[in-house]
Every structure is written in structure tokens, then in C-alpha cells.
Simulated assay, not measured.
Amino acid sequence: MTTLVVRALDDSSAHLFDTMPDPLAFRDKHRHTRYRADWRRIAVRDGRTVARAAWWGKPEDPEPLVINWFDVAEGEEEAGAELLRTAPWQTDELELDLPSGWRTDPRLRAAVDLRAAAARAAGYAPLVERFLYRWTPDRGLPARPGRLRFAPEPDDAVFLGLLRRIHSATLDAHARRAVEQGGPDLAAQQELDVFHWFPSPRAWWRIARTPDGETAGIHIPARNPSGPCVGFIGVVPEQRGHGYAYDLLADCTHFLAGQGAEFIAAATDRSNFPMAAHFTTAGYPVVRERINFWADAAAGAG
């Protein structure tokens, strides 16, 4: 086999990223995503691009947050792994955003298995599978039950305390992983760091209370670099069992629509059946599925 050449791209060579087939329709998935040219890399053999990856984050970030586009040609798993291993960034997470129903289509299943094998060879292990949602105004605004009162809260310490309580018992795989590493304190701080990372205003964050003043949970209407999104929905443990997550989601949707959102992206773990049901009720269709891989920065530092 001839020598593999891994190269970074820049503005003059960015077009080379688009020289591979796209069986998993990543181009359609990322039509709203804006990538820095220098956060995209390709692997070339005999003049043919055999692997490509794109790292994503805010344009002003010193390093990207995640790999969310990863393609590998048939038989080139090691080339894909080398592309990731030699990257200059310590990126813990890799996302494969996949067409819904990919498991039942042999062609799509083979394409997913190929990319997953390359990710594993680079040190990434599967963490969780998720549903991706996309609300649009034609779906109509979800009904508001009117059971909770929503208000901003300027004190980060209040949100941190509520996040500790929420993550003390959670179905979210990312939060559970953080709890295993450092308890609810670490999970809460990581979540708060993400909230601050969003380029949307801090004033958007909302706390929900019952009419008698008891805290029920929080929701974070947000914008990430690709557009409006449901940043977080969380109900404190002692208020669960009332379906309040739907109330939070409905209010979050109304809030973002009031800010002029032409779409709202959202996601939840496939295993989080209650939250998945709330998204369905609120008019959020599943548009893609995702496999999240995690590597504890083992794949970077090339």
C-alpha cells in the first residue's frame, strides 16, 4: 500500500474536503454548520482522499470542542485512525450523526460500522446513542400547561446547586460519566461551563418554580455556533413524576421562537424514554440519530 499523506486544510485548499462520497449525508446534516478551514483535515493516498474529519467549536475558540464529521473510505480504517491520532487538538469527543433508521439499511449500517471501527482504532469508545430533533415553526408551538412560573436568575451559584441536585440522579450518559469521575460536583460544573460556552446571552437562563414557590427545575434556551438549540432541560429529583420536563421544554421552545428562531435543535439519549416522549408531544420530530464516542483526550496530541 502506498504512503498515506495527512494534511491540514486552509482557505485555499478547503475544497479538497468535499472530494469524498457522502453515504451518510453528512453534508446535508451540516448545511448550517460553519467550520474553520484549519479545523478540517484529510488523509490522501495515491491522490485520492480516503479519510476526512472536521472539528467544531466557536470560531474564536483556541481549540475545537468536538469532532462532528468523520468519513473513511472502504478498507481505510487505519487511515481514518491516523488522521485522528495525528491531530494537534486534545478533543475528547467524536460524534457520528446518522440518518434515522440506519440500522435496517445494510448499506448505511456498513458505512457506520466502518467509521466506528476507525474511531475505535484511534482510541475512541462508544459512550451513548442519541436522538436528534429539529423543531420548525410549521410544527406549531407546544401548549404550555401553565403549572410552573419561569424567571431568570443572575447568580451562577444557584444554577450550580440545582445542577448538583439534578445530576445526583440522572439518565443522561454524559452526566453519569462525569458523576463516576468526580461526583455531582464535577457533573454540575461541566454543565455550567457548557452553558457559559454558548454564545447566547446569560440572561436567557430560566428557573422554574411551582405556584407555591418550590423549585421544579431549569431550562437553558441557547444558541450554539450552528443556531438555536435547547441547551438543557432538568427537573430536580423531588419534583419528578409530574411531567414537568415537558413544561420546561414548552417554555424553552416559546422563548426561542420569541427570539425569532427559524428552527430549534435538540437531543436526548435514546435510553431516556420520558424525555423522548416529551419531545414528541412538543412537536419535535427525530431528524437524525447520533453515536457519541469518548476518548479522554487519548486521540489527540499528534
Rank of each mutant, 00 (worst) to 15 (best):
T2M: 14
V6R: 12
L9M: 06
L9F: 07
D11K: 13
D11R: 15
S12L: 14
S12Q: 12
S13L: 07
A14N: 10
L16F: 09
D18A: 14
D18Y: 13
P21D: 12
L24I: 08
L24H: 14
L24Q: 09
D28V: 15
R31E: 13
R36L: 12
R40W: 06
R40E: 07
V44E: 01
R48G: 12
R48L: 14
T49W: 12
T49F: 11
V50Y: 05
W55M: 06
E60M: 11
E60Q: 15
P64H: 03
L65T: 06
I67F: 14
N68F: 07
E74K: 15
G75C: 13
G75P: 09
G75D: 14
E76K: 10
E78C: 04
E78M: 08
A81R: 05
E82L: 06
L84T: 02
A87L: 03
A87C: 02
W89S: 04
L94C: 01
L94I: 06
E95M: 15
P99I: 10
W102R: 07
R107D: 15
R109M: 09
A119W: 08
A121F: 08
Y124G: 02
A125H: 07
V128P: 10
L132M: 14
Y133T: 01
R134Y: 09
P137T: 13
R139H: 14
G140R: 04
G140E: 01
A143Y: 06
A143H: 10
P145K: 06
R147E: 00
R147F: 03
R149T: 03
A151H: 07
E153T: 05
E153I: 08
P154T: 07
G161P: 02
I166E: 02
S168R: 07
S168Y: 05
A169L: 10
A169E: 11
T170Y: 03
H174P: 02
R177C: 00
E180K: 05
G183M: 03
P184D: 02
D185K: 05
A187G: 03
E191Y: 01
L192K: 09
V194L: 08
H196N: 10
W197Y: 15
P199M: 07
R202M: 09
W204I: 04
W204D: 02
R206V: 01
I207E: 04
I207V: 15
T210R: 12
D212E: 09
E214D: 13
E214N: 09
A216L: 02
G217S: 04
A222W: 01
P225T: 04
G227I: 08
G231K: 00
F232T: 01
R240Y: 05
G241W: 05
Y246G: 00
Y246I: 11
A250K: 14
A250E: 11
D251R: 00
T253Q: 04
H254I: 06
L256Y: 01
G258Y: 12
Q259W: 01
G260C: 08
E262G: 11
I264S: 02
A266R: 00
N272T: 07
F273W: 12
F273H: 15
A276G: 10
A276V: 13
A276S: 12
H278M: 13
H278V: 06
T280W: 04
T280M: 00
A282Y: 00
P285F: 11
P285R: 09
R288N: 07
R288I: 08
A295W: 00
A295H: 00
A297I: 05
A297Q: 10
A297K: 11
A301H: 13
G302D: 02
G302W: 06
